[in-house]
Amino acid sequence: MNAKILFLMLGIISSAFKSQVGINTKNPQATLDVNGDVMIRKVDTLATPENGSRILVLSNNNTINQIDADHLLTPKIIVKGLGGTGFSLLSISLLNGWLQVSFPTLEIDDGNNYSLSQQEFITPKTGIYNVYFFLEMASLLSASTTGIGIFKIGISGNITLLCEESFANINVLGIGVSPPTRSTQTIVKLNKGDKITFGMRGVVLSNISLLANSNAQFSILQER
């Protein structure tokens, strides 16, 4: 037997009684303390733990720990909806004066988390989300106060206006108008089952012609 291998084996056996084994160190500070490179030639494939995946990480004090890797291995949730000439308002009142916006097209929704029938994003997992909403009308608006808003619908059904952008009208040649664009954005913590939807106010269904040739879009990105 190679003398170096024999020496290493004897060192490990003798160190076992101390409950600490050192390789290239005479003063091990852990159960196995390796002073040098480590090569692992084969690792058996293990079944995924019932409570999630695990990965090994090197911490600041040079010890190896395992952490929950689900948030690293699971793709982030991304949804993007578009509304061109098909953008419309539903007769669903979110809060006083607010009507729900309908987006006919989803450009991105890999996890199928946005319901086109309900026009709601249904949160699949608790996390922090970045939500953005943009609307551009085809011309200056004559409505007195036109605004867009992002709404959260809790599991219990309660509706909360998270953020909004509205402009009161200004007079141009004696006619009350306001700028044609609106945008609003927020970062919010959502629990699994919470819903996000989008609303508009200042335009009534009887004056729906204002939406002709207008454009709207939204995006939802899971931050963590």
Rank of each mutant, 00 (worst) to 15 (best):
residue 212 A to C: 00
residue 37 D to M: 07
residue 90 L to P: 00
residue 117 S to A: 15
residue 150 I to N: 01
residue 6 L to S: 11
residue 111 G to T: 14
residue 6 L to M: 12
residue 2 N to G: 01
residue 173 L to F: 14
residue 161 L to W: 05
residue 162 L to N: 04
residue 222 Q to K: 12
residue 144 S to K: 14
residue 20 Q to G: 00
residue 97 G to P: 05
residue 159 I to E: 04
residue 79 V to Y: 03
residue 214 S to M: 02
residue 165 E to W: 03
residue 171 N to C: 04
residue 221 L to Q: 13
residue 104 P to R: 09
residue 17 F to V: 12
residue 4 K to Q: 15
residue 54 R to K: 14
residue 193 G to Y: 14
residue 158 N to W: 06
residue 132 Y to V: 10
residue 85 T to D: 15
residue 44 D to Q: 10
residue 115 S to F: 08
residue 120 E to V: 12
residue 18 K to M: 03
residue 120 E to Y: 08
residue 48 T to I: 13
residue 60 N to E: 14
residue 177 V to Y: 05
residue 10 L to Q: 14
residue 135 L to P: 04
residue 98 W to S: 00
residue 121 F to G: 01
residue 195 K to H: 02
residue 106 L to A: 01
residue 44 D to N: 06
residue 75 P to K: 11
residue 112 N to I: 08
residue 73 L to K: 10
residue 179 P to N: 09
residue 64 I to V: 15
residue 187 I to Q: 13
residue 214 S to N: 06
residue 141 L to H: 07
residue 178 S to P: 12
residue 76 K to T: 14
residue 216 A to H: 01
residue 200 M to H: 05
residue 3 A to H: 10
residue 187 I to F: 01
residue 36 G to I: 10
residue 67 I to Y: 08
residue 157 G to D: 07
residue 102 S to F: 09
residue 147 G to D: 06
residue 94 L to I: 13
residue 145 T to C: 06
residue 103 F to T: 03
residue 178 S to Q: 14
residue 150 I to W: 08
residue 132 Y to R: 14
residue 66 Q to L: 08
residue 77 I to Q: 13
residue 60 N to Q: 12
residue 160 T to C: 00
residue 28 P to N: 02
residue 212 A to D: 13
residue 62 N to T: 09
residue 167 F to S: 11
residue 62 N to Q: 14
residue 53 S to T: 12
residue 127 G to P: 00
residue 97 G to C: 04
residue 172 V to S: 10
residue 127 G to H: 09
residue 40 I to K: 07
residue 186 T to A: 03
residue 50 E to A: 13
residue 151 F to D: 04
residue 181 T to W: 05
residue 139 S to Q: 13
residue 41 R to P: 02
residue 40 I to E: 11
residue 100 Q to H: 02
residue 12 I to H: 01
residue 9 M to P: 00
residue 146 T to F: 12
residue 200 M to E: 01
residue 208 I to H: 05
residue 101 V to L: 11
residue 8 L to Q: 07
residue 171 N to D: 07
residue 137 M to D: 04
residue 158 N to M: 03
residue 117 S to L: 15
residue 20 Q to N: 01
residue 83 G to M: 02
residue 221 L to N: 15
residue 154 G to L: 09
residue 91 S to F: 01
residue 69 A to R: 04
residue 84 G to H: 05
residue 222 Q to R: 10
residue 211 L to Y: 03
residue 189 K to C: 00
residue 105 T to L: 07
residue 83 G to F: 05
residue 196 I to E: 00
residue 59 S to W: 10
residue 1 M to V: 14
residue 210 L to I: 11
residue 167 F to K: 14
residue 37 D to P: 04
residue 115 S to G: 06
residue 152 K to F: 05
residue 214 S to T: 02
residue 59 S to N: 14
residue 89 L to G: 10
residue 124 P to Y: 07
residue 174 G to A: 06
residue 152 K to R: 15
residue 8 L to F: 04
residue 61 N to D: 15
residue 224 R to S: 11
residue 71 H to T: 15
